[in-house]
Simulated scan of single mutants.
Amino acid sequence: MLQALLIFALQIIYVPVLTLRTIFLVKNQTKAASGVGLLEAAIYIVALGIVFQDLSNLYNIAGYVLGFGVGLFIGGKLETKLAIGYVTYHVNLLDRSDELVNALREAGFGVTVFTGQGINSVRYRLDIVSKRSREQELLEIVESIEPKAFMNSYELRSFKGGYITSTMRKKAKKYKQKQEEKMNSQ
């Protein structure tokens, strides 16, 4: 029974580590992925080795299976919490919204405005790039100003140049300071 608990614990560690490795690979961070992969392989070999010592021990097998399931849940939560990388949002509007564009830029988001022809009228599309860790903030700004906007998003694997530089970081920091000052003055 002690072995089953050990296997369960190892799986709870193993699967989130596997999740991190996968994220790093998808984000093209191969050095980080290979480092995490070493830990992943070590845990995998130890846990599976214990299971294979006695395949008739159902507690060990159950520990492995249950640990894998719980580990997947934890790995998913960890991925959401870390929010590694960047996302691009396309925000489609029926009318031009300088208020939204200005609010997003003030908050430190890079915004490019496009004009296009819809089936019956002119449409406006905003391309907005954000760190995934600020995605909720972006959505709240859009929702508060243009609640009927149509939005879709894409995760960026890589990019070069553009607004995502130290300027974006500085503006985001300045915006957060303003928000904190607002909260403190109320």
Rank of each mutant, 00 (worst) to 15 (best):
A4D: 03
A4Y: 03
L5V: 05
F8N: 01
A9D: 08
I13G: 00
V15Q: 02
V15P: 01
P16R: 02
L25S: 04
V26W: 14
V26E: 02
K27Q: 07
T30P: 10
T30G: 09
K31Y: 07
A32N: 09
G37N: 10
L38M: 13
L39M: 12
A42T: 13
Y44V: 02
Y44A: 05
L48K: 02
I50E: 01
F52M: 12
F52V: 10
Q53G: 11
D54E: 12
N60D: 10
I61W: 00
Y64D: 01
V65W: 06
L66M: 07
G67I: 00
G67A: 04
G67Y: 00
G75S: 01
G76E: 03
L78D: 02
K81C: 11
N92T: 13
L94K: 06
D95K: 13
L100G: 06
L100I: 05
N102M: 12
A103D: 07
A107P: 03
V111Q: 09
T112A: 09
T112I: 05
T112C: 09
V113W: 11
T115A: 15
G118K: 03
R123Y: 12
Y124A: 08
R125L: 14
R125K: 13
V129L: 13
S130I: 01
K131I: 03
E140K: 13
I141E: 04
E143G: 08
E146D: 12
A149D: 01
N152A: 04
R157H: 12
S158W: 11
T165D: 15
R169I: 08
K171E: 12
K173P: 02
Y175M: 02
K178M: 10
Q179G: 01
E181D: 12
K182W: 04
K182A: 07
